[in-house]
Design a protein around this nucleic acid. Structure first.
Length: 486
RNA sequence: GCCCCCAUCGUCUAGUGGCCUAGGACACCACCCUCUCAAGGUGGCGGCACGGGUUCGAAUCCCGUUGGGGGUGCCA
């Protein structure tokens, strides 16, 4: 199996059967942690590559040496791996290919398609404001015949007439008048290339067949294409511009405002499979309507051309639901393994979790919720939730009697097991008159005071199993302590 | 301002001219189940932005309006 095939986990036959298989790329820039928007972009690239037997290349766009934070590249790579969205071959770093972009820039200058400009951003903004026209660069230096220098940037001489059209798998045909394209910067005064230049040079050089990226790039596409033409590149990839992900204010998700880094969700106890599952549902949906499913099935069903074209709200509530579903579907040992890193008390918490793990598993939405659910089993003074206490002890019926009767009954128990505990508590309930019409114990009422006394809360895993795990000594001690407090 | 894109329940979506008195999921509400909470079950709430066309017939096609978003950086 080829190295590339191994990274994507593709069978060799699939990886080599066609000579002209699709080549896609994910091109993050290390200016921030990997966030859910980026993760969704990789996912759609990845799904299309996997389904079509294509390749997915990872390209780190680190040409802006000023803003670049190399340590973030590690996070991006880690998170991609953690999500299970691998790439083919070694990642490419644009910082290692600067010569390629400079050569392209030189060619553009030599052919008259680019010119040097010494306007500062402030100056061109001031001019725009003064003339009251549209913001943006006005072509001030177009014919000044400036040469390179410490404060000059190379700009592209955008075509003045004609129109640029491209086909988008998601949006159909998009046409833009070339006259609306401003003369954008190719080379910064520092000599480093900008996004558009590096982008087209690399996509063509790497023979990328499908450019799948966020909607925010739609407007840049005509510039990218004009640049390619000016470079004499006979290159036209297929485009697919994914709808942006938005927050509750319907604004594009931003790392600043919204806390949406993949790392953060990982730390909160989301499963990678759940994140990926949820993300696949944003801007796209399986034809059969089955939303909760493994990645492999998304590979089979996913079609780029079926992606929606309107922005999608990133709904944490729904992602939590998806996570809960994935958590419950886990084999118990696996659930324990995954929960372990979230247990801040180490061995003690592990020991506490073990006997009631299955009961906890079906009750948590996030792995971070596990510890709180078993906190009553820790060897330390019980923290009692006041609202729960009031509800069960003050407003609840016959709390003192119920506690007394349970203490007596449980103290006399031979076998300390969930079933015998249940029997004892039922008997206690009957003895204090907490019975239904048939004369059976009314456990829904009777369990309240006991639950709050022993676990500190009114909600939690089933009581009898919890008490079995708590043990006779601690159960009785807590029951007595609660009785005294009444 | 200019350019581009978008428009089905609160949210994510199904729907590609008749199968739609618009289907599913999340959220919410009620009931059932039940030792609490979850889970599960049943039901409910709730939508084709508006106006014109085209057509025997439009959520679906066309035009316009309105609304929203994205871009307009020596960020990507």
């Amino acid at each position: 199996m080829s190295h590339a095939a191994a990274r994507l986990g593709l069978p060799d036959t699939l990886a080599t059967v066609t000579t002209d298989r699709p080549r896609l790329r994910f091109a993050p820039s290390p200016t921030g942690y990997l966030h859910v928007g980026g993760a969704r972009t990789v996912l759609f690239n990845w799904l299309h590559a996997r389904r079509t037997g294509g390749e997915l290349i990872l390209r780190i766009e680190d040409t802006d040496t000023e803003r670049n934070r190399p340590e973030l590249t590690e996070n991006i790579l880690d998170m991609l791996q953690w999500l299970g969205l691998g790439w083919d071959g070694e990642p490419t770093y644009q910082s290692a290919r600067m010569n390629l972009y400079r050569e392209a820039a030189d060619r553009l200058f030599a052919s008259g398609r680019a010119y040097w400009c010494d306007c500062t951003a402030e100056a061109s903004q001031a001019r725009a404001k003064e003339r009251g026209g549209p913001p943006g660069y006005d072509g001030f230096c177009r014919d000044r015949a400036l040469g390179p220098g410490p404060a000059t940037a190379l700009r592209f001489r955008s075509p003045d007439d004609g129109a640029t059209t491209f086909e988008d798998l998601i949006r159909g045909t998009v046409t833009v008048e070339n006259s609306t394209l401003e003369d954008f910067v190719l080379l910064r005064s520092s000599g480093t290339p900008t996004f558009l230049l590096a982008n087209i040079v690399d996509d063509a050089d790497m023979a990328i067949t499908h450019v799948v990226r966020g909607e925010e790039h739609v407007n840049g596409t005509p510039k990218y294409l004009c640049l390619g033409d000016a470079l004499g590149l006979d290159y036209r990839p297929v485009f697919a511009h994914l709808p942006v992900l938005v927050n509750e204010g319907r604004q594009k998700l931003s790392k600043r405002r919204d806390s949406v880094s993949v790392q953060e969700f990982k730390d909160q106890g989301y499963l990678p499979s759940a994140i990926v599952n949820y993300l696949a549902l944003l801007g796209w949906g399986p034809k059969d309507g089955v939303e909760i499913r493994p990645l492999e099935e998304f590979v089979e069903q996913f079609r780029l051309e079926d992606v929606t074209s309107s922005p999608a709200f990133f709904d944490v509530k729904k992602m939590q639901h998806v996570n809960a579903e994935h958590l419950r579907a886990l084999p118990l040992p696996e659930f324990l393994d995954l929960a372990r890193p979230f247990l801040t008390r180490g061995a003690e918490a592990e020991a506490a979790l073990e006997p009631i793990a299955a009961l906890v598993q079906e009750r948590v939405r996030l792995l971070t919720e596990v510890e709180r659910m078993i906190a009553f089993l820790f060897d330390e003074p019980l923290e009692i939730d006041e609202a729960s206490w009031t509800k069960a002890m003050v407003k609840g019926k016959a709390a003192p009697e119920m506690l007394d009767a349970s203490i007596t009954g449980l103290d006399a128990l031979g076998d300390w097991a969930a079933e015998t505990i249940r029997t004892a508590i039922e008997a206690a309930a009957v003895s204090v008159g907490l019975v239904n019409a048939e004369g059976h114990a009314q456990l829904s009422k009777a369990q309240g005071p006991i639950r709050v006394s022993t676990t500190g809360r009114s909600v939690g895993p089933p009581l009898f199993e919890s008490l079995e795990a708590l043990g006779r000594e601690r159960t009785l001690a807590r029951l007595r302590a609660a009785r005294e407090r009444l």
